[in-house]
């Protein structure tokens, strides 16, 4: 029952995010600030993880290629498919739930505890529009981050395969280009858009509705991470079923 109560409250919060918009010029600045914090600020760590994950995928594939009849280009192919279909959109979103989601939940939660949200409301400002809407818009740029992550991941695979002597550069690039289905990119970006929405709103919900003190801000942050991950994993399954099967 409690679960459904939260779903209902979450939906009502989403509806309120788009009501009573904040002054345009202020909103523009908030959106740019959020893009800087949520997207650009996450580029370094996600690129770093992606580089090494791409390398590991290439290594694992190469180490499992025992049969000499299987071409080495499979390393490039497997790296591309893993990175584009699952690693970049899903795995990075789970990491983002920890990095960005916790930050959103704790910052909004702290504002709740210190009455800053009440202050906004008393001033006649819609706190949800002021705080959450810019995050939703900023995370519309999330596919751009994921596009970079895809490139960096495949580069990581290339470096591990080529400089590790597992495949030639030609074989790897041939594998990356082999049986390429453009729809897979579209599928990955559609997933990314949905995950971006979840990343912006679930932690915001947990931060906004939290009650208590500083300790509860930490709890809200942890809970938001868990539920964002759960939502991403479920959405991933549903979207894959709808878009690929």
């Amino acid at each position: 029952m409690r679960f459904f109560k939260h779903i209902g409250a979450y939906m009502m919060m989403l509806a309120r995010v788009f009501r009573r918009p904040t002054k345009g010029i202020v909103l523009k600045e908030l959106i740019l600030k959020e893009i800087d914090e949520l997207i650009i600020g996450s580029l370094g760590i996600t690129a770093f993880i992606s580089l090494f994950m791409g390398a590991v995928v290439a290594l694992q594939t190469a180490l499992n290629l025992d049969n000499p009849l299987i071409p080495k280009s499979l390393i490039g192919f497997a790296t591309r498919q893993s990175i584009i279909l699952e690693f970049a959109p899903t795995f990075i979103s789970v990491i983002m739930a920890g990095k960005v989601g916790s930050n959103i939940a704790s910052s909004i939660g702290s504002m709740r505890v210190t009455e800053q949200i009440d202050a906004l409301e008393v001033m006649g400002i819609n706190p949800l529009n002021y705080l959450v809407f810019p995050k939703i818009i900023a995370l519309l740029f999330y596919p751009l981050l994921i596009a970079i992550i895809m490139f960096v991941g495949i580069m990581g695979g290339y470096m591990a395969a080529v400089y590790g002597g597992l495949a030639s550069a030609g074989d790897f690039i041939k594998g990356v280009q082999e049986t390429f289905i453009p729809w897979h990119i579209a599928y990955a970006f559609i997933k990314t858009m949905v995950f971006g929405m979840l990343l912006a709103t679930i932690p915001s919900y947990h931060g906004y509705t939290m009650k208590g003190g500083a300790l509860d801000v930490g709890k809200a942050s942890t809970t938001s991470f868990v539920w964002t991950c759960v939502a991403i994993i479920i959405a991933n399954y549903i979207l894959t079923q709808l878009l690929l099967s």
């Binding site: 009440d118 202050a119 008393v122």
Partner: peptide, 17 residues
Amino acid sequence: NLRKEMGMLFQHGALFD
């Protein structure tokens, strides 16, 4: 609109940190 005519001093200030 009424709220725009209100000023509120919160117990702990509630300044935007």
